[in-house]
């Protein structure tokens, strides 16, 4: 994650109303969401700055109406933003003309929708090949590539079905396959599993993690489900009233919620299952003996934490470097829910 960010948004505003640009230009500093609403405008996205690194999964979490879907639509320019800048691969997307925008979507972006957004008159294969067809690939290539992704998402044998002949989970697999057909660098997922029932949702999350492990895309994932966010995210951005309340790794959000609003989400969470040894490791804390891997959660270390009698345990990163010591008492506090 060292190179330049794939998506970088600076002070992005998206207002809905009669004359959003004019209003934003004249708007005094520090207007709150309700102030803006009183002026007759809805702040879909309110002064958001966020960056997504290459290969990173950013999960945007928020309740309905918090602006998360609006924000992701600004990234793909399905919405025109009112103020600020959004750069994708260093290119200001607001400066693109229609042709360039279409070209960018055809080559770089894929998107999955909550209610799938499948075309009812096309078969599974035709739906998946749709983006390829739009960019003018020939029929044979299209078919070959579509069959490839169909296999990838486990829909073999259903190529000729129509969307209405499939279950919700299968339909979303089609949506996922379609978004992957063009081999995008950037993958937007807008509450992809919210319309599915809980068991299928879990299965699809696993499936999704499997895919991501294989493909390693840059991902912006939207959800209103905090557990889902914790499960999937490299970093989470929590949104409320169009603004980002906190944007950080799951560990840090759980350990140090920035605002009371964020704290409300973290209260009920079993922190031991979220926080990793690496996060708690302090370089200034010396420790000896067998090291523990940075990528394990406190929950996974539970037995060892109880049994071990060292004050501090050395933590080793993936590359085998000792990155610091883990304060066993602090870890136990988290395990017991006292922190």
């Amino acid at each position: 994650m060292s190179d330049a960010p794939v998506i970088s948004a600076h002070n992005v505003w998206k207002l809905f109303g009669t004359d959003p640009e004019g209003y934003l230009a004249k708007m005094p500093q520090g207007r709150s969401y309700s102030d803006i609403q009183a002026d007759g405008y809805i702040a879909g996205v309110k002064d958001v700055s966020v960056e997504v690194a290459k290969g990173e999964m950013l999960v945007i979490m928020g309740l309905s109406g918090s602006g998360k879907s609006t924000l992701v639509r600004c990234f793909s320019r399905l919405h025109e933003i009112t103020g600020g800048t959004i750069e994708v691969d260093g290119q200001d997307i607001m400066a693109l003309n229609e042709k360039q925008l279409i070209e960018m979507r055809r080559s770089k972006m894929g998107m999955v929708f909550q209610s799938f957004g499948l075309l009812p008159h096309r078969t599974v294969l035709e739906n998946i090949a749709f983006p390829l067809e739009m960019r003018g690939q020939d029929k044979h290539d299209r078919r070959e590539r579509a069959l490839e992704v169909i296999k990838l998402v486990g829909l073999d044998g259903r190529e000729d079905y129509f969307p209405r002949e499939l279950s919700g989970g299968q339909q979303q697999r089609v949506g996922i396959a379609r978004s992957l057909a063009i081999e995008p660098d950037i993958w937007f997922l807008d509450e992809p599993f919210s319309a599915l029932d809980p068991l299928i949702r879990r299965e699809m999350q696993d499936e999704f993690l499997r895919l991501q492990a294989m493909l390693n895309k840059t991902i912006v994932f939207i959800t209103h489900d905090f557990d889902e966010a914790l499960r999937l995210a490299d970093r989470i951005a929590i949104m409320k009233d169009g603004a980002v309340e906190q944007c950080d790794t799951p560990d840090k959000i759980v350990l140090n919620p920035a605002t009371p609003y964020v704290a409300k989400f973290t209260e009920e969470i079993d922190k031991a299952r979220v926080v990793h040894a690496g996060t708690l490791a302090r370089p200034d804390l010396a420790a000896n003996g067998d090291p523990i891997p940075a990528g394990t959660t406190i929950h996974e270390l539970a037995r060892q934490l109880v049994d071990d009698d060292r004050e501090a345990l050395p933590v080793v990163s993936k590359d085998g470097v000792i990155i610091g010591g883990l304060d066993r008492r602090q870890a136990l506090d988290i395990l017991l829910g006292a922190a």
């Binding site: 399905l78 279409i102 972006m109 998107m111 960019r135 937007f188």
Partner: peptide, 23 residues
Amino acid sequence: EVVEAGKMSGCTRWQMLRHVYIP
């Protein structure tokens, strides 16, 4: 969402009408 799916698939205006809206 179907409209947005069409746009994200890189449809031109004509393609949107012909392949997304009318069907």
